[in-house]
C-alpha cells in the first residue's frame, strides 16, 4: 500500500463577508389578497409578514446569485479567482442538470472552482456553511462561496390561503475562509425523514411527463396547477418552535457558550410567530438582537439567514465580531444550527 500524503488545511474557518440581493418588485399583502380570501391583519398576525420581494423574469436564480456573490466577495476583500468552491443551496432552480453553481462560478469570474448544488430546504445555508468549513479545514479550498437562493414565488400556490402570503425571492451569499481561531462552531444538524410529508412539493415534476394528467390539481380557472410548496402548519410550528429550540440549545452547548454570551440570533425567517416562540422557549436575554427580516422579505428558504445577516449588519443592529446563533430548519425535515462570529 502506497503512503498517501495527508491534506493540509487551515486550522479554523470563518465567515469573511456577506452579500444579499432582493428583487426590485416589493409585493404588499394587498396583492396577495387578490387571490385569497383573507386580510392584511390576518396575514400579519399569523406570520408578521407585511411585504415580500418577487423576482422578475430577468432576476433569475443565477442573476440574483451573481449580484449577492459580488457583494460578499467585495465584503470579504478577496478576488473571485481565489474562490476554490461554490456551493449553492436552492430548491427553485428548475433545471435538474447541470447544477446552477457552475454557471454562477463562471459568471462571477471564479475560474474553475469546484461547484455544486445542494438540496436542504430552509436548512440549506447551514448545510452549505458546514461543508465550506470542512473544505477549508481539510485544505480542499482556501475560500468557499456559499449561496442560498430562491425564487419561491414560482413554487407558491396563490390560491392557497395558508401559504400564498408566506414566500419570497432573493439571494444571500457568504465567503468562508481560513481563520486563526474558531469563528464557526460545531454544527448540530440532522434530518427527520419520517416527517417528510410535513413540508413538501404538491406534485412531482414527472407527474407532468406521463400521459394521464387527470389526477393533477387544478386552479380556479380549470388549469393544471404548477407544483407548489405546501405544509401542515400546526405540525411545522410545533416542530420548529419546540424541537428546534432544543437543537439551538445544543449548538450553544457545543460552542461552549450560553445564551448570555450571544449578541445576535438569526433563525431561518419562516414566520415571525415561530421566531417569537423560539425566543421565548430559548429564554434569550433582552440584549440579544433578533433578526426579523421576515416582515419585509417573507420566507426565502435557504436565502433567509444570509439575507437577514446582511441586513442586520447594514442597519447597524449587529456589528462585525458579534457572536450569532444561526439555525435553519425546513422541508425534509432537516435542520442545522451553529454559532458564528459575524463578518
Amino acid at each position: 500500500m502506497s503512503k498517501i500524503k495527508p491534506s493540509k488545511g487551515a486550522p479554523y474557518a470563518r465567515i469573511m463577508g456577506v452579500g444579499g440581493y432582493r428583487p426590485t418588485r416589493v409585493v404588499p399583502n394587498e396583492v396577495i389578497l387578490e387571490t385569497i380570501d383573507s386580510s392584511d391583519e390576518w396575514i400579519r398576525s399569523r406570520s408578521g409578514i407585511a411585504t415580500r420581494h418577487w423576482a422578475s423574469d430577468e432576476e433569475t436564480v443565477a442573476a440574483m446569485s451573481v449580484e449577492a456573490s459580488g457583494k460578499a466577495i467585495a465584503d470579504a476583500g478577496i478576488t473571485p479567482e481565489q474562490i476554490g468552491a461554490v456551493v449553492v443551496s436552492t430548491v427553485s432552480h428548475f433545471k435538474q442538470t447541470p447544477a446552477i453553481a457552475t454557471e454562477i462560478a463562471d459568471k462571477i469570474g471564479a475560474g474553475k472552482p469546484a461547484a455544486f448544488d445542494i438540496s436542504a430546504g430552509c436548512a440549506g445555508f447551514g448545510y452549505g456553511l458546514t461543508l465550506a468549513k470542512g473544505m477549508i479545514t481539510d485544505g480542499s479550498a482556501e475560500y468557499v462561496l456559499v449561496i442560498g437562493v430562491e425564487r419561491l414565488s414560482d413554487l407558491t400556490d396563490l390560491e392557497d390561503r395558508a401559504t400564498a402570503f408566506l414566500f419570497g425571492d432573493g439571494a444571500g451569499a457568504v465567503i468562508v475562509g481560513p481563520a486563526t481561531e474558531p469563528q464557526i462552531g460545531p454544527t448540530i444538524w440532522g434530518s427527520e425523514g419520517d416527517k417528510s410529508e410535513t413540508i413538501k412539493q404538491t406534485v412531482a415534476w414527472n407527474d407532468f411527463h406521463v400521459g394521464d394528467v387527470s389526477n393533477l390539481p387544478l386552479d380556479s380557472r380549470g388549469n393544471i396547477k404548477f407544483p407548489a410548496i405546501t405544509q401542515e402548519g400546526q405540525a411545522v410550528f410545533r416542530w420548529a418552535v419546540f424541537e428546534m429550540a432544543k437543537v439551538a440549545q445544543q449548538a450553544l452547548d457545543a460552542a461552549g457558550i450560553t445564551a448570555d454570551d450571544l449578541d445576535v440570533f438569526i433563525p431561518h425567517q419562516a414566520n415571525e410567530r415561530i421566531i417569537d416562540s423560539m425566543v421565548k422557549t430559548l429564554k434569550l436575554p433582552e440584549h440579544v438582537t433578533v433578526a426579523r427580516d421576515v416582515r419585509t422579505t417573507g420566507n426565502t428558504s435557504a436565502a433567509s439567514i444570509p439575507l437577514a445577516m446582511e441586513r442586520l449588519l447594514a442597519t447597524g443592529e449587529a456589528k462585525s465580531g458579534d457572536t450569532a446563533l444561526v439555525i435553519g430548519f425546513g422541508a425534509g425535515l432537516v435542520y442545522a444550527a451553529t454559532v458564528v462570529t459575524l463578518p
Partner: peptide, 11 residues
C-alpha cells in the same frame, strides 16, 4: 387562541 397559539397551549 389562533391555530398557532393553540399549538403553544397544547405543548
Amino acid at each position: 387562541v389562533d391555530s398557532l397559539s393553540m399549538v403553544e397551549v397544547v405543548v
